[in-house]
Amino acid sequence: MVLFGVDVDYLAFVVLFCVGLYMLVRKSNLLKKLLGLNVMETAVFAFLVTSGMIEGADPPIRTAGTGPLFANPIPHAMVLTGIVVAVSVTAVALALIVQIHAHYGTIEVDELKGLP
């Protein structure tokens, strides 16, 4: 679907990305910032998967009775890599958040500012 010369799906992913960016930039809570980062990542993955789709195509698995059109396998492989990296980043960041809470007793950036 195209609206005013822009693809509506891509538009929706831009909106999702910006919602995540807003959460990352404006929220003071470190956990909410990390949730925002995850929302941004998922929006990017959705953009890549959507760019690899073809109208009426089958998944890129060439077994009997499929075809002739197949979705593009490269974005799918990239997104699989991205999902694994995203969960790695999230795990390390969460462990750091637990440590910050243990040291300072808060995970609000506003309260962490100026602490020794």
Partner: peptide
């Protein structure tokens, strides 16, 4: 491999 995502990976 028939699953091309696995093949690319």
């Amino acid at each position: 491999m028939r699953n091309l995502v696995t093949a690319v990976l």
